[in-house]
Structures are given as structure tokens and as C-alpha cells.
Simulated assay, not measured.
Amino acid sequence: MQNNLAMEVRSAPRSRCRLDGAVRYMRQVADCRIVNISRTGMALELYTAFHASTGSMVTIENSEVGLVEGLVRWNRGGRIGIQFRPNSNSSAKVAAYFRNFHQEIKPVLKR
């Protein structure tokens, strides 16, 4: 991705997916759907209100990926962007997901 505004941008390409899960922050738990994932992060679509500011540490639980931790990079419009913690546990779980479970999801409607 080109960076014209000297902004920090994602470093890995994301793949579309549709995986149901839950995101936790302190005592909040919200059901969500993982809409895209990469080796460095994921985007979630939230089903309920979720109040976590940028920089907050959250935990995402999903049957295919497992339990991963990450930082909130953005939160707007019912969606939230997560950057995985740079530890071997998270990266190993995401690598295993891509190796064993991932199937690219294509849009149903065409423009």
C-alpha cells in the first residue's frame, strides 16, 4: 500500500474471510465476525457496541484461529482493526490458520 501522508500502514496483504468469534476488552465481550486477516492483523465487524480505544489490548477468540491478543489500531462504524502482538504464539496460530483452514472468500454481488 502506498503511503503518501507519512502514515503507518499495514505491512502484509489481507485475505477476506468470514469467521465468527468474540472480542474481549477488560470486562466487555462482544460477538464479532472476522472479515479479513493477515499475518500481522485482522479486521472485525462487531455485532454489538464495543468500547475500546486505539492502543487498547484486546483478546480475540475464534475456533479456527484460537485465542490471539492484539492492539486496537482503529475503531469506527461498527468495525475494529487489530494488530497482533508481535510474539511467537500469535504468529504461530495465524500461520497454522492459513496452512490448515483459510479459504479466500469472494464477494457475492458484483458491481
Rank of each mutant, 00 (worst) to 15 (best):
N3Y: 03
N3M: 10
N4D: 07
N4P: 15
E8N: 12
R10N: 09
S11P: 06
A12R: 12
P13W: 05
R14F: 10
C17N: 01
R18D: 11
A22P: 03
M26Q: 13
Q28Y: 09
D31H: 12
D31Q: 03
C32A: 11
I37A: 01
I37E: 01
S38G: 10
S38C: 11
S38M: 03
R39M: 14
R39L: 14
T40F: 06
G41K: 02
M42I: 13
A43E: 01
A43N: 11
A43F: 02
L44I: 09
L44P: 11
L44R: 05
E45Q: 14
T48D: 15
A49C: 09
F50P: 02
H51G: 06
A52P: 02
G55Q: 02
G55R: 04
S56W: 02
M57I: 10
T59C: 03
I60L: 14
I60V: 09
I60A: 10
N62L: 08
S63R: 15
G66K: 06
L67W: 02
V68D: 10
L71G: 08
G77A: 10
G77L: 12
R79F: 13
I82R: 00
Q83H: 09
F84C: 00
P86I: 05
N87H: 07
S88P: 05
S88C: 08
S88H: 12
S88T: 15
N89W: 07
S90D: 13
S90P: 06
A92D: 13
Y97D: 00
F98H: 11
F98N: 12
F101D: 11
I105Y: 03
I105Q: 00
K110A: 10
R111N: 08
R111E: 02
